[in-house]
Amino acid sequence: MLVNVIEEPGTEMALRAALSSLCDLGTEGPHLIRLVAECEGVNALLAVVLESRSSSIRTAALRSLSTVCCITDTIRRFEQAGGLEILAELLTEETRPEAELSEAAAVLAQITAPWVEGNHNVRGLTESLPSIVHSLTRLVSNTRSDETLLLSAAALANLTFMEPQAVWPLLDCSTAGELLQSVKLRGPQASVFLQEQAATLLANMAAVPESRPYLAEQRAVVGLLCFLQIRHSPLQRAAEIAAAERVQQKSAIAISRLCSNPVVAAQVVELQGVSRLVKLCKDKRERNHSDGVLVACLAALRKIAANCGTGAVEELDALELVQPRLLDSFLLYSSRPESYV
């Protein structure tokens, strides 16, 4: 019924109501979303995006798409209907209202989300990467909207999970530097979720050795050390506390990878980063008892010690964190109560 109204709306009001209802339906669970796919709902929404003369209706259709494209069935329908090409073209049009571009970024973030089971690639993504990364980087640089920035950052971070080749257009567009600058401009108002996306992007880019000189030039390590300062609070929601842990873990992973370069490792020492890494290892409360954060910080400290010596760690009476074996250090400060013997 809803799909029929979207395909042949009697009035604009009816179309708006149907789009809103479909958006609500998308939160009711995968069984209903599969019905939307089977009834050609994805095709109908894409047709609205292409054909409607109203920006607010196109925006609503994109919002509905981002809601329903959360399982492989609907993502495959989106793919088969040429949805990725439509998104890529839409994002290149700078004259589009930002609300539309923001919702398009949300759809892209959704169809590339690493948590969608069985969704390992999207047809045509590789070919569209240069255009998409350029458009999202422009959004990151120009937007004053915190929501648009978060959605664009999430889309970019997700691209680095799904498509390893994304690193090359990211380097061409200086995306990491633009994102770090936008986060910096938000100051203390930058949400933990935005910091998580930025840390994720940097960690995934740093996994590619060719990207490390660029990240070092952008002084990404300064931003990462700022991200490491994040602390959870009992007043925060569970989602914010979990995100804070991920920020710490991803930041430490990125630092470890970047510290393969002795110059970057020396920067971390100079910026007192070793002190924060040691504290996160030794004080379980600082990392909300996360062993994932512990392992990432131990790896970073050992990479720094390998390139700069153990002096900075010894000054903090923390030599046990960098020798002898990683497993020994882990067991010493792990939050897990069970025996590993």
Rank of each mutant, 00 (worst) to 15 (best):
C281A: 09
P9C: 12
L19D: 01
R237T: 00
H232L: 11
V274I: 12
Q181D: 00
C259G: 03
L84E: 06
A99K: 00
Y340W: 09
Q267V: 13
L301C: 10
V295S: 14
S182E: 06
A60I: 04
R287E: 09
T126W: 13
A244Q: 10
T72Q: 12
E103G: 01
S174R: 11
E217D: 10
E178A: 08
L149E: 03
L194Q: 07
A198F: 06
L87P: 12
A88I: 10
S182K: 08
L277R: 12
A254T: 09
I6V: 13
L159G: 03
V49W: 13
V167E: 12
R58T: 01
V140M: 04
A243K: 08
I57D: 07
A109G: 15
A37Q: 09
Q165S: 12
L277M: 11
G273V: 02
V341T: 02
L319S: 05
L19M: 03
G82T: 12
Q189M: 14
N121V: 13
L327C: 14
F161M: 10
L215W: 07
R285A: 12
L332F: 05
D283I: 02
S131W: 00
A203C: 13
A154M: 12
K279I: 04
R138F: 08
L25C: 14
D328A: 01
L19F: 01
D291W: 00
A190W: 15
S20Y: 10
A104V: 02
A109S: 15
R276F: 05
A198K: 04
V3G: 10
V122N: 08
A17P: 09
A220Y: 05
Y340S: 13
V183H: 09
N261T: 14
V268L: 07
P337S: 14
S66Q: 14
A299P: 07
A155D: 01
L170I: 09
I86Y: 12
V268N: 07
N43T: 13
G26V: 06
G41D: 02
I111P: 13
